[in-house]
Nucleic acid binder design. Sequence first.
DNA 1: TCACTGACCGTGG
DNA 2: ACCACGGCCAGTG
Length: 109
Amino acid sequence: MKPKLRTDDWIEKIYALVRQIPRGKVCTYGILAEHAGTRLTARMVGWAMNAAHHIQPPIPAHRVVNRNGLLTGKHHFGSPTLMQELLEAEGFIIKDDQILDFKKYVWQP
DNA sequence: TCACTGACCGTGG
DNA sequence: ACCACGGCCAGTG
């Protein structure tokens, strides 16, 4: 009997991982997806983040960026600059919606 | 009910 | 080095 391999299962992993991201670090959709089970579901990670907006506790989705270090989801934060503001508040340097030296701040579980 | 899209990533030509 | 395509899951029209 396989456990219910459903959304709730891996989606919680995603949330847990994102909440484990220390301040001053960032993570990518690919890494989260990979640690959540499948690395090919990076797209769903974004969907999970979207759902994370109305759940508790709040998810620091601003620390989750794409492989390019680009703030792809900034437009989904309610304010197009909210994500950048949050990241800058943590010491990141954002240029053209992109984190400078992003590779140096990548956090891996 | 069927089909398409989505805060992506990796590989191929 | 650049462009194009496929793949995964779930939600919505």
